[in-house]
């Protein structure tokens, strides 16, 4: 899923300081699951804004609403009435949702209420980890399901650096060394000889480094363009 964290409240407050009618728009997908931008958080944010502005002597009309999915135009229609009534929208979706809103309601400004952090998963209640950088050329078959590009702090392809100690990354004792994990798993699967393979430099052109990516599937297109 896409994991996000709410922006510090003073920043949110500052981003809408010149507006008097505000809509806080949540998203029912990833950010609901990671408890950063769902219906509950949208209501909380709206209430907090209302209280803070009242205290500051600049009362504001705040509404909240949550759509099922902010990253697709058709789902945004469910919020049309609230969007049109507001002067500005605070989106609690990921960066994709914020941009979809600005494209779909081009006359209205939608500002981000979240920082989109990464593609990852909940490891346990309240803890999420980063697992995928979307590099466009998956190598998880080679490394037995542990991504060296994402989970090694130096994105190394050919084994652990000299900073790996007791299973942890040199960057932080909180971060597992991805290559220690891969090494252990190769032993478990009796494939340790894979450590000897020298993987050549990666072709990063399939990733964001190759420019902005657009994915086209001719077999499912219906627009005929």
């Amino acid at each position: 899923m896409i994991v996000g964290e709410r922006k510090p409240f003073p920043k949110i407050l500052q981003s809408v300081e010149n507006y008097e009618k505000i809509l806080v728009l949540g998203c029912g997908e990833c950010v609901t699951v990671c408890m950063a931008g769902g219906d509950k958080e949208a209501k909380e944010t709206a209430l907090a804004l209302s209280i803070a502005r009242k205290r500051a002597g600049k009362p504001v009309a705040v509404e909240s609403k949550t759509v099922e999915r902010q990253c697709e135009f058709e789902y945004l229609e469910a919020a049309r009435r609230q969007v049109e009534a507001a002067e500005v929208v605070i989106s609690l979706a990921c960066g994709v949702g914020v941009q979809a809103m600005n494209m779909h309601f081009a006359d209205k400004l939608t500002v981000p209420g979240l920082n989109t952090t990464f593609m990852g998963m909940p490891l346990r209640q309240g803890v999420w980890t980063e697992n995928c950088l979307g590099c466009g050329d998956c190598v998880l078959d080679l490394t037995l399901g542990i991504c060296p590009i994402t989970r090694c702090s130096k994105s190394m392809f050919n084994g652990p650096c000299g900073g790996s100690q007791e299973g942890k990354c040199e960057v932080s004792k909180e971060v597992d060394c991805a290559w220690q994990l891969i090494y252990d798993r190769l032993i478990k699967m009796d494939m340790l000889e894979r450590m000897e393979v020298i993987h050549p430099p990666k072709d990063w052109s399939a990733s964001h480094h190759g420019s902005v990516r657009t994915s086209v599937r001719e077999d499912v297109r219906i627009d005929g363009q």
Partner: peptide
């Protein structure tokens, strides 16, 4: 952090 190639790849 650039890390376009790793140390092994650079050596090679």
């Amino acid at each position: 952090n650039v890390n376009d190639v790793d140390s092994m790849q650079w050596l090679q």
